[in-house]
């Protein structure tokens, strides 16, 4: 699972959705891999406004990546900054969470990630 994807996922438990603690989910015992993906600067620039930057900063730090700046770059800044483009590409598109868990900060439920696939099916008592 890409780090980009984590930015769009929250806890599947309905009562958690209203809580800001349920997003982003926290990786635990994460095993990472790196995919070789061709850099597409335009795609990154276009995706930028859809990304929750604060959540991405949290995820990035939790996975051991260097701290991201407090504010997201503007489209113009990103377009002109080759290093920033490359760093974001590596983080969002190439880094794969292959094994581990995703933990909800509100209810504590742990979702398993196996072979790169996160499973959000809930046990019946949480549905």
């Amino acid at each position: 699972m890409k780090v980009l994807t984590l930015n769009f996922l929250t806890c599947a438990v309905k009562t958690c959705k209203a809580s800001s603690d349920s997003f982003p989910l926290h990786p635990k015992d994460a095993e990472l891999a790196s995919d070789d993906v061709e850099l597409n600067p335009q795609l990154l620039v276009n995706l930028l406004p859809r990304i929750d930057w604060n959540a991405l900063r949290t995820t990035s730090t939790e996975l051991g990546f260097p701290q991201l700046p407090e504010q997201p770059p503007t489209a113009e800044e990103l377009q002109a900054d080759e290093k920033m483009l490359k760093d974001l590409h590596t983080l969002l598109m190439e880094t794969q969470l292959m094994e581990g868990k995703l933990v909800c900060g509100h209810c504590g439920h742990e979702y398993a990630v196996r072979e790169g696939i996160a499973n959000f099916l809930l046990p019946s008592h949480l549905v």
Binding site: K2, F8, L9, V13, K17, A118, F120
Partner: peptide
């Protein structure tokens, strides 16, 4: 680029208003 996850349509784990 795309991703796949296992989830139930009646308990979706997607961040609200994000898509």
């Amino acid at each position: 680029p795309s991703e796949v996850i296992v989830a139930d349509g009646l308990s979706l784990p997607f961040r609200e208003c994000a898509a």
